Simulated scan of single mutants.
Amino acid sequence: MGASSGDPKVSRAIVRVASTLPWIETGVSLGAGRETGSLLGATAAASFALPHTSMNGTAGLDATVRLGGGWRLALAGELGVVRPGAASDLSIITGATRLTTSRFSAGLLGGSVLKPGDRFGLRVSQPLRVETGGVTLTVPVGYDAARGIAVLEDRRASLTPTGREIAVEAAYMRPLGRYGVLETSLFRRQDPGHSAGTTADTGAIVAWSTSF
């Protein structure tokens, strides 16, 4: 979407309460925020301007389980609610319902797997996704010739995407002594952008770094 008038502004506060045991750490987090000039990071202007201000709240759970032998299992999930404010009088988007969102991740992390000092990670995640909610559009559906005006009606458009992006990534880092550090990563994203039927995104990254 195009840029809106004025820079988007986001303010947010998060409170997290954690409990730690010898083999597991768990946490519960609650967040609240205000977004101005954008909606979930998206901006638009003129006739497609989104509601200018929205309030949001989130609730999350996370846990890190120590499996022994230098291995850890990290889990995290978050649900959110967004309450959009009033829409612009000049926009065909005349309203928005409450939105619900989700995101989650699960990762297996290990250290000194093949060599002392190396690190391995395997992660599965879903980025932020709108689960329910939409906007109301006031659009022309006909023309009243007698009065010389367009006939307008409200139409509801869902903001829930057609797919669900699931990303899988495997990463490995290995120190090479005085020769630096080698890092490799393989990833695959199914339904990238939460768009069903989109070709899966697959790639690899190899990086070597050293100091002089």
Rank of each mutant, 00 (worst) to 15 (best):
D62H: 08
L21C: 05
V168I: 15
R174D: 08
F48L: 15
L114T: 15
R156Q: 13
A96C: 09
R164L: 11
A170S: 13
T138M: 07
T36A: 07
L90M: 06
T199L: 12
T198Y: 04
I24K: 03
H194S: 07
G37H: 00
S91K: 00
G163S: 09
T97M: 01
T199S: 15
G95T: 01
A106L: 07
T43P: 01
E183P: 04
S112D: 15
G134C: 09
A45T: 12
Q126W: 02
G6F: 01
P140W: 08
T202V: 15
S38G: 07
F187M: 09
E183I: 05
G70C: 10
R147V: 10
L61G: 08
G95N: 05
V28M: 09
M1L: 08
R123K: 11
T210N: 11
V135W: 01
I166T: 15
F212D: 07
G133A: 03
V181C: 04
T136K: 06
L30F: 15
T136W: 02
D118L: 06
E165F: 10
L182S: 07
L176W: 06
R34D: 05
A200K: 12
G203R: 04
V151T: 14
T210P: 02
A145L: 11
A146V: 14
S195Q: 12
Q190E: 13
P192T: 13
Y179Q: 11
W208V: 13
A86F: 00
R156I: 05
S125W: 07
A87P: 02
L128A: 10
I166D: 00
T199D: 15
L128D: 12
G70D: 12
I149A: 14
R12K: 12
T202Y: 03
A157T: 07
G203H: 09
S209I: 02
G70H: 07
D118Q: 14
G6M: 03
V124H: 08
P192G: 09
K115V: 12
R147E: 13
A59C: 02
T36L: 01
T138C: 08
A196G: 09
V139R: 05
R83H: 12
R155K: 11
I166L: 15
A146P: 03
A207W: 04
D7N: 13
R129D: 01
A45W: 00
S5K: 06
L186H: 07
W71H: 14
G110K: 06
P161W: 04
G57P: 01
K115M: 13
V130R: 02
A18Y: 06
L99T: 01
P192E: 03
A200T: 14
G77F: 01
P8A: 05
L73G: 03
D62Y: 05
G37F: 00
L73E: 05
I149T: 15
P192F: 04
Y172L: 08
F104D: 06
A49P: 02
E183Q: 13
R66P: 01
T198R: 15
D62W: 01
G57L: 03
T58F: 05
E25H: 11
G142E: 04
A170M: 13
L114D: 11
A63T: 06
V181K: 09
R16E: 14
L75V: 11
R98Q: 15
A96I: 05
A87Y: 00
D201R: 06
L40A: 10
M55Y: 14
R156E: 14
N56I: 01
G6P: 05
P192L: 07
S11N: 12
